[in-house]
Design a protein around this nucleic acid. Structure first.
Length: 557
DNA sequence: GTAGGGTTAG
């Protein structure tokens, strides 16, 4: 085994203590740490508070919590400082319950909590929204007089702000004897996170000093409200911007669907990191621009930026939309050779969705079956995959299996199964699901659900029923539903209904050439050439070019 | 004699 060599300047033959402390400072890996640990035991220094505290702090970043704890547990009557180091490690690597339990143990074992103890525990509570636990910790801080400290006060503002207890946060803020830029910023974050940008901005305006974070949280607040105008105004006023400022703005534009502005700002950013690339790629994917998403991903690769799980999830979403099996296979194998853990729920869900929609049902199925707990989202991915590839009957079987597992379908799940029924022409099943959606699950069908039913009924020749359903809808049907019926009128050569439906569509979407073409084709089937030319003339009058139809189709394919 | 804590983006 290689042993660490100490630089001669650090070696101190007369005293054992500094040499081990120096060794600790030089530790870079868990293995180094274990070697020093062996030295500590060997030299009988396991009770040296100073050394063990330093050791725990390092173990917090280099090793596991259980390792830190095992070293800590051998110390008799640990100092406050030592307790605080372990609590910090617990906060960083475990959950709120564990951190609070450790604090309870500290009190039980007569450890003395001080102003350094509270920020970590409060942070653990804040990150999980545990306001009741937080209040108890707050009370404890008051009892030992630690609540007057700036760091403790700021942590309390953060806690109450994150838990949406804005009045409590403000009370702490107002009662603080000393505040700094972080305390002010935490208070601004509190207002911003409850959507009160008036008060957030008001406070921001009064701040004696602002730093980059203060500016960025104001932008974040406006972006969260979808107020891109004010977000941009603040962004433009910033004395200096960093990568977070740009990323927040880009993400805001992407979420509001303005990918042109997102891209423009991205180009202007002096530096780009993985989060910024991710904001752009996910924006393209979520705005239905999968080709742009893939293109941007490739661009990122040529810049030698290593993709992370967020980028890969966006890429998989884009891939699902284009249904490209070749790309899906590449992404799948990339993930399997990377350090990304594909068993994280959102990664696995995207992977199943991508494989199902790109036609690799075998891979999707094997991932799906191995899931510890199958959820609604993954079921829907699988059902949609079967549906896209014409396996409607299997989609119905899987949907029923999902119901048997006790999962309650939502509106999206019904859209998926009704689409499956409609594309495979499963009329009875579709009617059954539409019925149970309303009466068993108490869901209100939206225009999409009606569109599926209209499509299903009309394609099986039940044109009148489809028309009646459209007429009886409590919500306004969208053009797609009428369009499906018009298509079926063409298929089943029903000229009267076709005329009726087409005229509704001409009002709903006067610029869509497909409707004119369908009606003229219906007339043509009956050799009504005069009517054909009337429709064609109407198209010309409105300046609609027929070739637009073929352009639209080629873009979709 | 020596050490420790709080705010922003996917």
């Amino acid at each position: 085994m290689p042993i660490m060599r100490l630089p001669s300047s650090l070696a101190s033959p007369n005293s054992l203590l500094p040499s081990i402390a120096s060794l600790l400072k030089a530790c870079k890996t868990q293995f180094h740490l274990q070697q020093v640990h062996a030295q500590i035991i060997h030299k009988g220094l396991e009770q040296d508070f100073f050394l063990i505290t330093q050791f725990i702090c390092l173990a917090n970043t280099l090793s596991s919590l259980s390792y830190s704890t095992s070293v800590f547990d051998r110390v008799e009557g640990p100092s406050s400082h030592l307790w605080n180091s372990l609590i910090k490690g617990c906060c960083d690597r475990s959950n709120c319950v564990d951190t609070v339990s450790l604090f309870v143990r500290m009190k039980r074992e007569e450890g003395v909590a001080d102003r350094y103890t509270y920020p970590s525990i409060l942070k653990a509570c804040a990150s999980e929204g545990k306001v009741w636990e937080g209040r108890a910790i707050h009370a404890s801080a008051v009892r030992c007089g630690a609540d007057g400290n700036v760091f403790v006060g700021t942590s309390l503002i953060d806690l109450y702000g994150k838990c949406r207890q804005i009045v409590c946060a403000r009370k702490v803020f107002d009662e603080m004897a000393e505040r700094n830029v972080v305390s002010w910023t935490a208070m601004v974050v509190g207002y911003a996170s409850v959507g009160d940008m008036v008060e957030a901005y008001n406070l921001f305006d009064q701040m004696p000093h602002r730093n980059l974070v203060s500016w960025n949280v104001i932008i974040t607040g406006f972006v969260k409200l979808g107020d891109l105008t004010n977000a941009r105004r603040v962004f433009d006023q910033m004395p200096e911007k960093n990568v977070v400022s740009f990323t927040t703005m880009i993400d805001g534009y992407a979420k509001s669907g303005d990918m042109a502005s997102a891209r423009f700002l991205f180009e202007q950013a002096p530096a780009k990191d993985i989060v910024m690339w991710s904001a752009l790629i996910s924006g393209y994917a979520q705005n239905g621009l999968p080709n742009q998403a893939v293109k941007t991903f490739l661009e990122m690769s040529t810049m030698n930026v290593k993709p992370d799980e967020f980028v890969m999830v966006s890429l998989m979403s884009a891939c699902s939309q284009v249904g490209c099996l070749e790309l899906a296979e590449w992404v799948d194998s990339y993930l399997n050779h990377s350090s990304i853990d594909i068993h994280q729920p959102h990664v696995l869900a995207a992977l199943i969705d991508m494989n199902a929609k790109c036609g690799n049902m075998e891979r999707a199925t094997s991932l799906f079956e191995k899931m510890p707990k199958r959820d609604l989202i993954s079921y829907c991915s699988m059902i949609q995959g079967l549906s896209i590839h014409g396996r409607g009957n299997q989609a119905v079987v899987l949907f029923n299996k999902m119901l048997n597992e006790g999962l309650a379908p939502d509106e999206v799940a019904f859209t998926v199964i009704l689409t499956a029924c409609s594309s495979s022409g499963l009329v009875e099943e579709g009617e059954h699901f539409f019925e149970s959606m309303r009466h068993k699950y108490g869901l209100i069908p939206c225009p999409d659900h009606y569109a599926c039913m209209v499509d299903l009924l009309s394609r099986s020749g039940r044109l009148e029923e489809a028309y009646e359903l459209l007429q009886s809808m409590p919500v306004e049907p969208h053009a797609g539903a009428w369009g499906a019926l018009l298509g079926a009128c063409k298929l089943h050569c029903n000229v009267e209904l076709g005329e009726l439906v087409a005229n509704r569509l001409f009002l709903l979407e006067p610029q869509n050439a497909a409707n004119y073409v369908l009606l003229s084709n219906i007339y043509a089937a009956f050799h009504r050439w005069l009517d054909v030319s009337v429709v064609r003339n109407r198209m010309n009058e409105r300046g609609i070019k027929r070739y637009l139809v073929s352009v639209q189709f080629s873009l979709k394919g």
